[in-house]
């Protein structure tokens, strides 16, 4: 392997790339967004998700307590106890495969991105990151002040120094692989609700 490595690196040194090869100084803030909250919500809806603004966690709890998503779920894994208790403790499971039948997972997101409706989820606090993709439905809870306009500002706020895995999640999983017909719910969550608190 070391030979291959040296060979490849040597070959790459002989490139013919011309012109200015310095690292560009750039910044492209998304100037088109006047209302972060409105934009965030409407993009999430356009990608098949749902977004609700609530005053506090208590209000969040109320919003979902009677909702179909909660009542229809049998196995609920909650990492935000203030919003829902849950009845499944994924942290107690030694193997992610044991989480295969979770109907609803509630976790915190660290950021929301107004230009694309994505929520940044740091999966490190979870014992099983696979839970995010196994769960049939997902509720992501973020703070209102954590909505940023664009990806540039999002990455400026994420600290990668100790991170092991993080995900941008924008709406439910989907596919259009059969004749370009959009079908929500491919392998991951069939529904994603983002609760923005405060």
């Amino acid at each position: 392997m070391t030979d291959t490595r040296r060979l490849i690196l040597d070959r790459l040194r002989k490139h013919a790339i011309a012109g200015d090869t310095s690292y560009p100084a750039y910044s492209h803030p998304h100037a088109g967004i006047s209302d972060l909250r409105r934009s965030f919500q409407s993009v999430i809806e356009s990608v098949g998700g749902e977004c609700r603004y609530v005053a506090d966690l208590e209000a969040a709890r109320k919003v979902i307590s009677g909702s179909e998503i909660l009542t229809a779920a049998k196995t609920i894994c909650s990492h935000v106890k203030e919003v829902a208790e849950g009845n499944f403790d994924a942290e107690a499971k030694s193997d992610a495969h044991q989480c295969a039948d979770v109907d609803l997972t509630i976790v915190r997101g660290a950021l929301g991105v107004a230009e694309n409706g994505a929520v940044w989820v740091n999966a490190d606090p979870l014992r099983h990151r696979a839970l995010l993709f196994l769960s049939e439905n997902l509720i992501l809870v973020i703070e209102g002040r954590d909505i940023v306009p664009d990806m540039e500002s999002a990455y400026a706020r994420i600290d990668f120094t100790r991170l092991r895995s993080g995900y941008f999640i924008s709406g439910p999983s989907k596919t259009a692989d059969i004749e370009q017909c959009l079908v929500i719910g491919a392998h991951g969550a069939k529904s994603v609700l983002v609760l923005v608190v405060g």
Binding site: Y26, H28, V43, S46, V47, V113, E115, N116, G117, A118, F133, D150, M151, E152, A154, Y155, A156, I158, F160, L163, R164, S165, G166, Y167, F168, I169, S170, G171, P172, S173, K174, A176, G188
Partner: peptide
């Protein structure tokens, strides 16, 4: 990392006309 902000903004919009793909995994 900052460069992801450029490429991810271009990739899905160019590919499928989505603002971003549903999942973007970052594995370290």
């Amino acid at each position: 990392t900052k460069d992801l902000g450029v490429f991810l903004r271009l990739l899905s919009r160019s590919a499928t006309g989505q603002p971003i793909s549903a999942y973007t995994s970052h594995l370290l």
